[in-house]
Amino acid sequence: MSLLNGIFPKMKMTRSSNQSTIVSLADKEYKKDRPLVKMCGITSARDAAKAAEAGANFIGMIFWPDSKRSIPLPIAKEISRKRWFLAGGVNHMNVCEALSILRPHGIDVSSGICGPDGIQKDELQILSFMKAVHSVHY
Protein backbone atom coordinates (compact mmCIF):
# COMPACT_ATOMS: atom_id res chain seq x y z
CA MET A 1 0.00 0.00 0.00
CA SER A 2 1.47 3.35 -1.04
CA LEU A 3 1.68 6.27 1.36
CA LEU A 4 0.06 8.47 -1.26
CA ASN A 5 -2.94 6.38 -2.18
CA GLY A 6 -3.70 4.11 0.76
CA ILE A 7 -6.04 4.15 3.68
CA PHE A 8 -4.33 5.25 6.89
CA PRO A 9 -5.27 5.13 10.53
CA LYS A 10 -6.27 8.22 12.43
CA MET A 11 -5.66 8.20 16.14
CA LYS A 12 -8.60 8.57 18.50
CA MET A 13 -9.20 8.17 22.20
CA THR A 14 -11.18 5.40 23.84
CA ARG A 15 -11.60 4.44 27.47
CA SER A 16 -11.59 0.93 28.84
CA SER A 17 -13.98 -0.30 31.51
CA ASN A 18 -11.48 0.56 34.25
CA GLN A 19 -11.33 4.16 32.97
CA SER A 20 -7.65 3.98 32.02
CA THR A 21 -6.78 5.87 28.88
CA ILE A 22 -5.98 3.78 25.83
CA VAL A 23 -4.75 5.15 22.54
CA SER A 24 -6.41 3.33 19.70
CA LEU A 25 -6.76 4.01 16.01
CA ALA A 26 -9.71 4.21 13.69
CA ASP A 27 -9.30 3.71 9.98
CA LYS A 28 -10.10 6.89 8.11
CA GLU A 29 -9.46 7.81 4.52
CA TYR A 30 -6.11 9.48 4.20
CA LYS A 31 -6.51 13.06 3.03
CA LYS A 32 -4.04 13.58 0.23
CA ASP A 33 -4.03 17.33 0.73
CA ARG A 34 -2.58 17.01 4.25
CA PRO A 35 0.71 15.52 5.42
CA LEU A 36 0.84 12.60 7.83
CA VAL A 37 2.08 13.50 11.31
CA LYS A 38 4.14 11.33 13.64
CA MET A 39 4.82 12.72 17.11
CA CYS A 40 7.93 11.14 18.52
CA GLY A 41 9.37 11.06 22.02
CA ILE A 42 6.12 9.88 23.61
CA THR A 43 6.86 8.82 27.20
CA SER A 44 3.43 8.15 28.69
CA ALA A 45 -0.13 7.18 27.83
CA ARG A 46 -1.07 10.76 28.72
CA ASP A 47 1.31 12.11 26.05
CA ALA A 48 -0.04 9.58 23.55
CA ALA A 49 -3.56 10.77 24.34
CA LYS A 50 -2.55 14.40 23.79
CA ALA A 51 -1.04 13.47 20.42
CA ALA A 52 -4.19 11.59 19.44
CA GLU A 53 -6.48 14.42 20.47
CA ALA A 54 -4.36 16.87 18.47
CA GLY A 55 -4.78 14.70 15.36
CA ALA A 56 -1.44 12.88 15.04
CA ASN A 57 -1.55 9.89 12.71
CA PHE A 58 1.23 7.99 14.49
CA ILE A 59 3.30 8.16 17.66
CA GLY A 60 6.93 7.20 18.19
CA MET A 61 8.81 6.10 21.30
CA ILE A 62 12.54 6.36 21.93
CA PHE A 63 14.68 3.56 23.34
CA TRP A 64 18.13 5.10 23.06
CA PRO A 65 19.27 5.16 26.70
CA ASP A 66 21.06 8.52 26.44
CA SER A 67 17.89 10.34 25.39
CA LYS A 68 16.00 12.25 28.06
CA ARG A 69 12.83 10.85 26.46
CA SER A 70 13.99 7.21 26.51
CA ILE A 71 11.54 4.70 27.94
CA PRO A 72 11.93 1.02 28.89
CA LEU A 73 10.23 -1.66 26.77
CA PRO A 74 7.53 -2.52 29.37
CA ILE A 75 6.38 1.13 29.47
CA ALA A 76 6.35 1.25 25.66
CA LYS A 77 4.26 -1.91 25.53
CA GLU A 78 1.78 -0.34 27.93
CA ILE A 79 1.54 2.85 25.83
CA SER A 80 1.17 1.07 22.53
CA ARG A 81 -2.11 -0.55 21.77
CA LYS A 82 -2.37 -0.68 17.99
CA ARG A 83 -0.42 1.36 15.45
CA TRP A 84 2.73 3.34 16.14
CA PHE A 85 6.35 3.71 15.04
CA LEU A 86 9.36 2.54 16.99
CA ALA A 87 12.12 5.18 16.94
CA GLY A 88 15.36 6.11 18.63
CA GLY A 89 18.35 3.94 19.42
CA VAL A 90 17.30 1.18 17.07
CA ASN A 91 20.02 -0.69 15.17
CA HIS A 92 20.62 -4.11 13.60
CA MET A 93 21.64 -5.58 16.98
CA ASN A 94 18.48 -4.70 18.92
CA VAL A 95 15.73 -4.32 16.32
CA CYS A 96 14.63 -7.99 16.32
CA GLU A 97 14.05 -8.05 20.07
CA ALA A 98 12.28 -4.68 20.06
CA LEU A 99 10.03 -5.63 17.13
CA SER A 100 9.22 -9.04 18.61
CA ILE A 101 8.27 -7.62 21.99
CA LEU A 102 6.54 -4.41 20.95
CA ARG A 103 5.15 -5.26 17.51
CA PRO A 104 5.00 -1.68 16.18
CA HIS A 105 3.33 -0.84 12.90
CA GLY A 106 6.52 0.76 11.61
CA ILE A 107 10.07 1.58 12.50
CA ASP A 108 12.00 4.84 12.21
CA VAL A 109 15.78 4.54 12.00
CA SER A 110 18.45 7.18 11.57
CA SER A 111 21.64 6.92 13.62
CA GLY A 112 21.33 3.12 13.68
CA ILE A 113 22.32 3.00 10.01
CA CYS A 114 25.05 5.65 10.09
CA GLY A 115 28.73 5.14 9.52
CA PRO A 116 31.47 6.15 11.96
CA ASP A 117 30.98 9.87 11.29
CA GLY A 118 27.38 9.65 12.58
CA ILE A 119 26.12 11.53 9.54
CA GLN A 120 26.55 9.54 6.35
CA LYS A 121 24.49 6.39 5.98
CA ASP A 122 26.54 3.19 5.79
CA GLU A 123 25.53 0.58 3.22
CA LEU A 124 26.52 -2.36 5.45
CA GLN A 125 24.57 -0.91 8.39
CA ILE A 126 21.54 -0.39 6.14
CA LEU A 127 21.70 -3.93 4.76
CA SER A 128 22.24 -5.45 8.23
CA PHE A 129 19.33 -3.46 9.63
CA MET A 130 16.97 -4.46 6.83
CA LYS A 131 18.01 -8.12 7.07
CA ALA A 132 17.22 -8.06 10.80
CA VAL A 133 13.86 -6.32 10.25
CA HIS A 134 12.86 -8.76 7.53
CA SER A 135 13.69 -11.72 9.79
CA VAL A 136 10.85 -10.73 12.15
CA HIS A 137 7.35 -11.91 11.32
CA TYR A 138 4.20 -10.96 13.24
Rank of each mutant, 00 (worst) to 15 (best):
H105I: 00
D66L: 14
T21Y: 05
L124A: 15
I107H: 08
A76Y: 01
I42Y: 00
A56D: 01
G88S: 10
I22M: 08
I79H: 04
Q120M: 14
S111D: 10
E53Y: 02
N91P: 09
E123K: 13
T43C: 14
K121C: 11
Y30L: 04
R83T: 13
N18T: 08
S128M: 15
S111I: 11
I59T: 03
D33S: 09
G60L: 03
M13N: 12
N91G: 10
S2I: 04
A52V: 02
P65A: 12
E123A: 13
S111C: 09
R46Q: 10
G55L: 03
P35M: 03
L73A: 13
W64K: 07
I22G: 00
L3P: 03
R81Y: 10
P74E: 08
L4E: 08
I7P: 05
W84E: 01
I62S: 02
D66N: 13
G89C: 13
M13H: 07
G89W: 08
D33K: 06
P35C: 07
N18R: 12
M11N: 06
E29F: 07
D27Y: 09
I126E: 11
N94H: 13
C40Q: 05
W64A: 12
S2V: 07
V136E: 06
V90H: 05
P72N: 12
K82H: 13
W64L: 07
G6N: 12
H92S: 15
V133M: 07
T43L: 04
F129M: 13
F58H: 00
V109C: 06
I42R: 01
K77D: 11
I101P: 04
W84A: 04
K82E: 15
L124M: 14
S44Y: 03
I42L: 06
E97V: 10
G112Y: 04
W84M: 07
S44D: 05
V109S: 01
V23M: 13
F129S: 05
G112M: 06
Q19R: 11
A26R: 10
F85K: 00
L99P: 01
I126F: 13
V133T: 08
Q19S: 14
H92A: 15
L25T: 11
I42P: 00
K10A: 12
P35L: 08
I126M: 15
H137P: 02
